[in-house]
Structures are given as C-alpha cells and as structure tokens.
Design a protein around this nucleic acid. Structure first.
Length: 449
DNA sequence: TCTGGGGTCCTAGGACCC
DNA sequence: TCTGGGGTCCTAGGACCC
C-alpha cells in the first residue's frame, strides 16, 4: 500500500502563509522571467487559467486585474517543503520525496483505521505548524495513489483530506470516472493517440491487451497500465537515486548579442552547477554548454547549438567546471546571431569518491577540494555570493525579469529563522532567485486597500 | 511588448565488431 | 541478379513528470 502526500496549490499556499490577504483571491505564481503560470489558487483554476499559461495570455481567460501575479521565491518554497516532509516522516516509513511538494511513503500500521488516524494527524499538524493544506491518497500502486490523491484534493466530502482507494470494486468505479489524460504517465500526445482509438477513460485503457499496449506504444505505458490494474511496477521510483545530470539554465531577460555578456551568464551557471554537484557529493565526468536564440521571434535568424566536453578527471571544482563550460561555449559561439537562453549541464556524474585519477592530469585534486570546501563554508556562513570567481562579477545583463515580487512580511523573521532577512534588501543583477530573497517592489492588489 | 527550469526513461538508428 | 546474423555502445530525439 502506497501513500502519496501532496501539498495543495503549493507555491500559492506558501505565499498565503505570509499574506493571508491572498486567501480567497485568484492568485498565480509565475515562472522565472515572469513567463508562465506555475501555480494557481483554486480561484484561478476555476477561472480557467491553465497550468503553464503564459502570463500575457491570462487575459484570454479572465480579467487580469482580478488576478494577483507573483514572482516565484523558490528558496521559501523549499524551506516550507522541508517542514512538511519532516512532519510526514514522524509518522510514515520509507518517505520518498518525489518533488518539492509531494512524497510517496508507506505506513507502519497494519490496520486501516490506525493508519487513517495517523495520516489525519499529519494533515492537521502540517496545517497547524506549517500553514500548508495537504491531501493524502492511499492505493496499492503509485499510479493509483496519484488518482486517490486527486480525489482527496478535489472532493470536499473526503474526511480529513485522506482518501483510500483499495477495494477492487471501488477502483473499478473510479477508473471509469477517470479521463485517460488524468492518468499519471499519460500526457498530451499519448492521450490524444489513445482517444483516437476510442480509449477515453482509465477503465477503457485497462481493458486493452497489455501486449498490444507494449507493441503499439512502449514498455513504459504498459507499466502504467499494469499499475492501474493494481500490480506494483515501481514506476518512476525516485528513491534516493542520486542525480545523473545537474543543469542550470535560464532564459535571459532580453535578447543578447554580446559574447562577453553571455559568457558572464555561462560562468554563473557553471558556478551554480558545481556548487550543487559538491552539495550532492558528486563529480562530473563531462560538462555541456548550450545556447539558443528566441524561438518565438520569427523575425530573427535562429541559432541553437550545444557542446559537450569530457574532463580529464571527473571533478566538482568550480574552476574546472567553469573552464570547461567556457571552452564548450567558445566552440559553439557564432557571431551575428541573437541569443535568448543558455545553460550548463554536468553529466556522467559519479558519486561516492571512487574517482579514477588521471596520471597526466596536472591538477592537485586534494588542494582543490580543500579550497572548494572552504569557499562553500564561507558562502554558507555569509551568503551565497560572498566569494565568486572573478569572471562571474560582470554586469549580469542576462538577468531574468522578475517584476512581481512583493515585500515579505516581517513575520518571516519569526517564522523561519533560517533566511537572513538582511539579505533581502538588495537585488543585484545576475544572480539566482534561490540565492537570496528579494525585494522592494510592491505588487498591486486588486480590491485591497 | 510579454511564452520556465530541471529532471527521468525509452527508442530508433548508426557505427562498429566478429 | 545476388548483398549474413548477431551483438554492443552511443547519441539524438521524443515522451513524460512537477
């Protein structure tokens, strides 16, 4: 039996913790660059604003003046996420965090009643101590637990925010009511294809011969089907598996043409990638840099390219990663094009320290490791940009647009104790939204004094 | 005017080998 | 005219997720 705990409208709920005036309003949280809607309040969902909706298209769905738009503050969301997961871990076993706002787990109790009480307790404690509403679904497989969770979230008659989808007859009824596109693992393309064959609900899908599903589509889809039938296939088991790739990429706030400005961005991306690599205790075997134009601008010549370079010895040292990223960038840079996005990716990541040293490699790796660990300590202590590489100290003209920050309530002081509010005062260009908090911009509140 | 970021897995096809 | 069979490994691209 799997449990799935999922935070309701997570980013919006986080914002509401610090500003109760957002309750009952249409609220959306925007992606980097204030580009797309990545979280919606129930009110915004009811108005028909879809997930991923470009901010400038909100007006196609509802009066945009009634919608409170907020730039994302991921560091805050991660902090609250940790608190939710900690409370869950008090009651549940084998907690596997699947994303920032959801986790699979199992319960130690044998009987449903005790389990239900334990989970109702978690839901209440999270609401009380973190301020975030959560829902829990239980089912024999993860794919069914996803469906159970949706029901817990949507149906107000579900008591305590916890729904059990266990009895075969109940599963049968629910599958008949579940549109095929709502099944975890069946996205836009697959659902369109299945519908064209008359498969409209999860129940229709389950009736297909599994061998046909595999031959017409893939083993992945066949696994999804078997999970719906109640056979645990461990799909998308995210469990403690260390990352295989780590990427940092951004869409620039504007189209860039200057090589040095883009190199500046590459350095920042590489630094951040290296830092994350070290935080996970991994080393990268190769580094990839990519650049691309703006594919929405048909009036500009489009260019997109990437280059992956192998390291002589796998490394997580900032200077090495930055150097490789810049070398790769130099290989793909073309004059005369415009650039809107770039990224740096660490690949072939190894964990656990069994690194094969290259005897021809002149670097003193012990020394580098000590230097990096000192830099990390200083940045942890004094703020993440206290020490950077000199090439990263440029203009930051690539910085994304984020014009919808609202001042954080002073209650943040009392609340987290983890975020240094003094760091919130300045908003230098060319840094990352999760490095520090911002800002002084005031958001207009419709219908608010 | 304005369209995110960071991941995973699978498959097909090509290069290469014996 | 006729052009094997069976592997492996790698890569690019497509699908999905939140």
């Amino acid at each position: 039996m799997y449990g799935l705990l999922d935070c309701n409208n997570f980013f919006v709920s986080c914002e509401r913790v610090f500003d109760p005036r957002l309750n009952g309003k249409m609220v959306v949280v925007l992606s980097n660059n204030d580009g797309c809607v990545i979280a919606r309040s129930n009110e915004a969902k009811a108005a028909g604003i879809p997930m991923g909706c470009p901010a400038f298209k909100i007006k196609e769905h509802t009066d945009p003046r009634q919608v409170i738009q907020l730039s994302a503050r991921h560091i805050l969301y991660r902090d609250l996420s940790c608190r939710v997961m900690n409370i869950l871990s008090d009651e549940a076993d084998n907690v596997q965090q699947y994303s920032v706002d959801e986790a699979f787990f199992v319960l130690p109790h044998e009987d449903v009643e005790t389990s239900h009480r334990a989970m109702a307790n978690v839901v209440n404690r999270v609401k009380q101590y973190v301020g975030i509403p959560v829902s829990v679904g239980f089912a024999p497989t993860r794919t069914l637990a996803k469906i159970a969770n949706h029901i817990a979230k949507r149906d107000p008659r579900i008591t305590d925010g916890v729904y059990w989808l266990v009895r075969p007859e109940a599963i049968d009824i629910i599958l008949r009511r579940t549109p095929i596109e709502d099944v975890w693992g069946i996205g836009r393309r697959l659902s369109a294809s299945l519908k064209s064959k008359g498969i409209k609900t999860a129940a229709d899908f389950v009736k297909m011969p599994p061998s046909l599903v595999r031959s017409m589509y893939s083993v992945t889809l066949e696994r999804t089907q078997r999970e719906l039938m109640g056979h645990d296939c461990q799909i998308a088991n995210p469990v403690d598996i260390a990352h295989k790739t780590i990427m940092t990429s951004r869409t620039f706030g504007k189209v860039l043409t200057d090589r040095d400005e883009i190199a500046d961005a590459i350095v920042s991306f590489a630094e951040r990638t290296a830092r994350q690599l070290r935080a996970e205790g991994g080393v990268a075997g190769s580094v990839m840099t990519y650049v691309r134009g703006d594919h929405f601008r048909e009036d500009l010549p489009f260019y997109s390219n990437s280059c992956q370079l192998q390291l002589a010895t796998p490394s997580s040292d900032t200077m090495t990663i930055v150097r490789m990223a810049l070398n790769a960038f130099n290989n793909i840079w073309r004059d005369g094009f415009t650039y809107r996005k770039a990224g740096v990716m660490a690949l072939d990541i190894q964990h656990g320290g069994a690194i094969q040293l290259n005897v021809f490699d002149p670097e003193d790796h012990g020394k580098l490791r000590r230097l990096m660990s000192s830099i990390d300590s200083i940045n942890d202590m004094y703020g993440s940009r206290s020490i950077k590489l000199a090439p990263g100290l440029q203009r930051g003209s690539w910085a994304p647009n984020q014009n919808h920050f609202k001042p954080l309530s002073k209650t943040l002081h009392f609340y987290t104790g983890m975020i240094d509010i003094n760091q919130l005062q300045e908003t230098p260009k060319g840094h990352f939204e999760d490095d520090e908090e911002q800002d002084n911009t005031t958001t207009e509140y419709p219908d608010m004094p």
